[in-house]
Design a protein around this nucleic acid. Structure first.
Length: 655
DNA sequence: GCGACAAGCTTG
DNA sequence: GTACGAGCTTGTCGCT
């Protein structure tokens, strides 16, 4: 099929700092200029974002400052499918590769991990110091959108920064229509490969100028220097997370396909049963409106809980309340459980695989306001955990006794191959240890020094003060609640105990652990003195203007958010810095092991079986080496699997 | 047919 | 007002 030249929006930009390079002579001149600089900006335009499938670079935008400090940009097209004049990638590739691997030249990008993926696809190694303006933007302002054009508008004061982006999107919509596709589908398949070079080039050059401009102002403001501890970690992570995504997670497709069939059959059966109970009425179980109607009008159940939009809630908590006396309500709950596994955890995963049955999730460095990582396509961080209830229901045994959850999702993630294992190193009670460090509360510190079960200790302390028993279950909820700034109302709801009882427990807790109450007060006071912001132990800032809000509930929410940021955020710094330490160790010793995944307080490493003892021992040591928490010990537990994620079990690490 | 939003569910 | 931080899916609604 011949490629058609379509050009719905011819471009016109007379800015001399934007050049489109389509001859060898001008390309050579460009390369000589870039190669003479000690830092440069680059940015690919691509044929989609799925780098692990068909998507690849179709052109590269490059930019650098001349001796007068003027920033210039150029777009080099080499794989557009428009039939226009462009350069031959076979001829220019080596020169681009040479620029990217220069060891002493700083590479500046807005989201450099993305460019790293596409560089690797061309066989080009991205080396030398990195500067990511997207990460810098997140560090200096944790509450705002990070999109390049938006930052250019706000931080550079560029008027009409979004103009070429909008022109480009218009063009893409036209192309999608011409190809009889939805915009989403078209963009996934073709990206900007069919956009005319004039428009794409101006857009690419504009991005380069914006990125370079952001680098200038962020460094004028001293962003990277303000974060001497986390900045090097963040920049190293752009490379290490890229490595992890390239490695990816192998998936057992046969298992997942069979599991999907099983839950779909289950859904069908439940649907039929519901129909029978309702005298043939065909309820759309997935429609909350219909479920609400059925429960209230047909069944006359007294629903009370409201949603945010003030509708009567039909969520799990409500349904569970009525399910003991109502078989249909119970069946709706069962259907939702099966549906979740069908749609979210089997069908969608199968759509994300590469040709080798490997998924490559996107580990996002700037996805949260606390400094944690997040993950998408798929999200590894909310894969259902092994569920004892289901295991017991179906096999009569708990998971730990060898029982099998028939709907296990983690079972679909096997090890890399024969004689490979996966190690799971997870921080033990890391958030409580962080809190103990910040508060220096004597009981909590003592508990960790003695390696006690901290929930049991809490239960004992509270019980002793009250002169009546405090169940461990309650103590555990209280301890977890500390990270979120839980109130007596929260405890009442979570633990399903009377409000006055929750109040008594919480009061007793804060009497016994007075250091924690004091830490919270000091945290808020200090933050308010510093203009509603606070830096954690590693120097990361959380800004919460609502700490001074006149609205009571907004102020309270900001206070809870600050507590959560302090504790979760600090714990996240340990995990992130440890990822860098472990990656460096594996590279130095040339051990054929790979970091594959991380879930907040856990790091997963694939390694040949013979290396497992060494990898586990060194990784554990590196993860625990945070002397700033002294005397509180930082402890990691280690687990291993020889088969799949569901069957991980304890692993003794040699000292 | 598409985008935005609400509601619900899953994790640490 | 009924906990903190995320991502994904479906249904619904309004718009082109």
């Amino acid at each position: 099929m011949a490629v058609q030249l379509r050009c719905f929006h011819p471009t016109y930009d007379t800015d001399p700092r934007k050049q489109i390079i389509t001859t060898g002579e001008r390309f050579e001149k460009l390369v000589r200029f870039i190669a003479s600089r000690d830092k440069f900006v680059f940015d690919y335009e691509t044929s989609g974002t799925a780098w692990f499938k068909h998507a690849e670079a179709v052109g590269i935008g490059l930019g650098a400052w001349d001796d007068n400090g003027t920033l210039w940009s150029a777009y080099v097209p080499f794989r557009h499918r428009t039939g226009e004049q462009q350069l031959d990638i076979g001829l220019i590739g080596p020169a681009i590769g040479m620029l990217l691997r220069s060891p002493n030249v700083m590479k500046i990008c807005h989201n450099i991990k993305f460019e790293d993926h596409f560089s690797r696809k061309e066989g080009w190694t991205l080396a030398g110091p990195r500067y990511d303006t997207m990460v810098a933007a997140r560090l200096y302002n944790d509450n705002e959108a990070l999109k390049l054009e938006h930052r250019a508008e706000v931080d550079l004061g560029v008027e009409g920064a979004k103009r070429w982006e909008q022109e480009l999107q218009k063009e893409v919509r036209q192309l999608a229509r011409a190809n009889r596709m939805g915009v989403k589908e078209y963009k996934y398949l073709h990206g900007y490969s069919e956009v005319n070079i004039g428009l794409c080039g101006v857009y690419g050059c504009t991005d380069v100028l914006h990125t370079g401009g952001l680098h200038e102002v962020y460094e004028r403001w001293g962003v990277s220097q303000h974060y001497p501890r986390i900045w090097p970690t963040e920049m190293a992570l752009t490379r290490i997370l890229c490595d992890m995504e390239q490695t990816g997670m192998p998936v057992d497709v046969d298992y997942l396909t069979q599991l999907r069939h099983q839950v779909q059959t289950e859904k069908f059966k439940i649907h039929e049963q519901i129909k029978q109970h309702l005298g043939g009425y065909d309820l759309s179980i997935g429609s909350d409106d219909e479920v609400r109607d059925l429960l209230t009008r047909t069944m006359g159940l007294p629903l009370e809980k409201r949603t945010e939009g003030n509708k009567l809630s039909v969520d799990k908590e409500v349904l569970e309340h009525f399910s003991t006396h109502n078989i249909v309500v119970k069946l709706i709950l069962d259907w939702r459980e099966a549906d979740k596994i069908d749609t979210t955890y089997t069908a969608s995963i199968l759509n994300l695989l590469d040709g080798n049955h490997v998924v490559h999730g996107n580990l996002k460095q700037v996805g949260t306001n606390t400094g944690r990582l997040s993950c998408e396509e798929p999200n590894y961080q909310n894969m259902p955990s092994e569920n004892d209830d289901r295991a017991v229901r179906y096999s009569g045994k708990k998971v730990k006794e060898g029982g099998v959850d028939p709907w296990s999702i983690r079972r679909a993630y096997p090890v890399r191959g024969a004689d490979w294992v996966r190690l799971f190193l997870d921080y033990s009670q890391i958030e409580l240890r962080v809190l103990a460090h910040y508060s220096q509360d004597p009981i909590m510190v003592d508990s960790f020094l003695k390696s006690e079960d901290c929930h049991a200790r809490t239960a004992a302390e509270v019980g002793q003060l009250l002169g009546k028993e405090c169940p461990r279950r309650i103590a555990k909820i209280v301890n977890f609640g500390l990270s979120y700034g839980m109130s007596e109302l929260g405890l009442h709801r979570q633990a399903k105990i009377p409000l006055d009882e929750a109040e008594v427990f919480l009061d007793a807790f804060f009497q016994r652990y007075a250091g924690i109450r004091q830490f919270k007060q000091e945290l808020w006071a200090q933050a308010r003195r510093q203009g509603c912001q606070w830096n954690n132990l590693f120097g990361r800032t959380r800004r919460l203007p609502d700490l001074r809000s006149a609205t009571f509930w907004r102020k309270k929410r900001a206070e809870r958010q600050m507590i959560a940021s302090a504790i979760q955020g600090t714990a996240a710094e340990l995990t992130k810095e440890s990822l860098v330490r472990i990656a460096d160790f594996l590279a130095e010793e040339k051990i054929p092991a790979f970091l594959v995944n991380t879930v907040h307080d856990e790091i997963q490493i694939d390694t040949p079986r013979e290396y497992a003892p060494r990898v586990a021992m060194v990784s554990k040591t590196l993860m625990e080496a945070y002397p700033e928490f002294s005397p509180i010990p930082v402890i990691t537990d280690c687990e291993i699997t020889e088969t799949n994620w569901a069957e991980k079990h304890g692993y003794k690490v040699a000292a």
